[in-house]
């Protein structure tokens, strides 16, 4: 089984976000970058599927500049066999989807796994766009995935519940927990990751219908009004007459 896992390199979830240059640039100084949490679930499940099958190949795919190579190496340490990096800033979801589809067309993957959403850009559309570009079904958010021959059985989240689905490979899936547990790279994994192949390719040219203008931070909340624990009635009054939310 050949699996392509698409990963983002995103600020660690504890990061404080800030911008510079008139709110047009993300400040990456002091930020630790990690594999996107949902992408990390996708990768973990890919490694499990390969182990269970006893054969196959996992390629990690990333659109980004050279500074994201540590994150790609981490994915290799977790268990991917090789990696491809498209040497360009990820302009938006359309651009990324185009790069993934262009590469996937040159290979034959049984599964293309992604996160259901990136935690920086949060567009949640890359898997769907890739499915369209390749003319194969895309499903998201997938919480369970089992493969039997050419058939996939999946559990998909729906609002207020879940659905069990079946479809034939190849498929593009957006993943989320509890599809697998995040994997911590072993010492051996880290050593072998250093020599696994990481191919750098140039982007296909592309123009989308989106134009970035600027960033903005939310206005901070004003100070929290404290209420004594012996006066919960006061909270009820405030919610009714001051905040008007009940």
């Amino acid at each position: 089984m050949n699996i392509l896992v698409c990963i983002t390199s995103v600020p660690d979830t504890t990061s404080k976000i800030s911008f510079s240059d008139n709110d047009t640039k993300f400040v990456s100084a002091g930020i630790t970058f990690i594999i996107g949490p949902y992408d990390d679930y996708a990768l973990a499940r890919a490694v499990e599927l390969k182990e269970a099958a006893g054969s196959g190949n996992i390629t990690v795919f990333h659109v980004g500049e050279a500074d994201s190579e540590p994150v790609i190496r981490k994915a290799l340490a977790i268990g991917a066999d090789d990696a491809v990096r498209v040497n360009s800033v990820a302009k938006d979801g359309y651009f990324v989807a185009d790069q993934i589809a262009a590469y996937a067309k040159t290979k034959s993957f049984d599964l293309i796994l992604m996160g259901k959403e990136s935690i920086d850009f949060n567009s949640g559309i890359v898997h769907g766009l890739v499915g369209e570009l390749l003319g194969i079904p895309s499903i998201s958010p997938v919480m369970k995935l089992n493969i039997n021959g050419n058939e996939a059985t999946m559990e998909k989240e729906i609002e207020g519940g879940k659905e069990t689905l079946q479809a034939s490979l190849p498929l593009v899936l957006g993943c989320q927990e509890p599809i697998a547990e995040w994997k911590i790279p072993s010492m051996r994994g880290i050593m072998s990751a250093r020599t696994k192949p990481l191919q750098v390719i140039e982007p296909t040219s592309f123009s989308s219908g989106l134009e970035f203008e600027k960033y903005e931070l939310p206005t901070p909340r004003t100070n929290c009004k404290m209420i004594s624990d012996s006066q919960v009635e006061e909270l009820v009054t405030l919610l009714k007459s001051e905040a008007k939310v009940i």
């Binding site: 600020p11 404080k16 976000i17 911008f19 935690i119 920086d120 850009f121 949060n122 219908g209 989106l210 134009e211 970035f212 203008e213 600027k214 960033y215 903005e216 931070l217 939310p218």
Partner: peptide, 13 residues
């Protein structure tokens, strides 16, 4: 964006 930690203004052309 950034999961509720920020916003971006963007134009649909």
């Amino acid at each position: 964006i950034f999961t509720g930690k920020a916003f971006e203004a963007m134009k649909l052309t």
